[in-house]
């Protein structure tokens, strides 16, 4: 059992920018949910509590909590949170996050392709997509051994592909590999 540690900390003003954005997002979400909850139809049959009641309660409580959180980031600042958020900000390397996110989405799209309106973009298949993604992501995360990463990537991809499709009965997209075989 420990009690909260409070160290003397610098002025919190800078640290609350992120939490303020989070508070705004929560307020918007809660407002959208309240509107959405009012739109839930009552549904047939007799019941004491209809399908809309609990969603409405959840949305309203969330709005209240989001409002309190917004207060804690503005006029009643939570200094502990501000300090820890400022620490986080200093430690964060945003380009890494952005690149990982973009690569990740690219990976998902490359697995089995996707359709954009009438155009269908074919996928690379599980093995190739994974074999490329893993070393790429590892590089973004700071790895300096591309050959090792590519080897690991394709090994994992091939083992998983064979294991899943042959032994577990899970379908994974063959993609380019399907063309070869």
């Amino acid at each position: 059992m420990t009690t909260e540690e409070r160290e003397p900390r610098a002025t919190p003003a800078g640290g609350l920018f992120g939490p303020r954005l989070a508070a705004t997002a929560l307020l918007v979400l809660a407002a959208v949910l309240i509107m959405s909850a009012f739109g839930i139809a009552a549904g047939g049959g007799y019941s004491v509590i209809g399908p809309a009641t609990i969603p409405l309660v959840v949305a309203i409580v969330l709005l209240a909590l989001a409002a309190i959180f917004a207060l804690r980031t503005t006029i009643l600042p939570d200094t502990d949170l501000a300090a820890s958020a400022a620490d986080e900000e200093r430690a964060t390397h945003w380009p890494t996050i952005g690149l990982v996110a973009i690569t990740l989405i690219g990976y998902a799209l490359a697995l089995d392709g996707f359709s954009m309106g009438p155009r269908v973009v074919p996928g690379l298949g599980y093995v190739v997509a994974t074999g490329i993604f893993l070393p790429l992501a590892s590089r973004i995360l700071g790895s300096g051994s591309p050959i090792r990463d590519v080897t690991v990537g394709f090994t994992i991809a091939i083992v998983v592909y064979i294991g899943f499709t042959q032994f577990l009965g899970v379908r994974l997209p063959a993609g380019l590999l399907g063309l070869l075989l």
Partner: peptide
């Protein structure tokens, strides 16, 4: 290496949900 480990976690997370 942490970089390889977390790249692999992302691969397995995608695999788990995709399957």
């Amino acid at each position: 290496p942490r970089s390889l480990l977390y790249a692999a976690i992302l691969v397995f997370a995608t695999l788990g949900v995709y399957s």
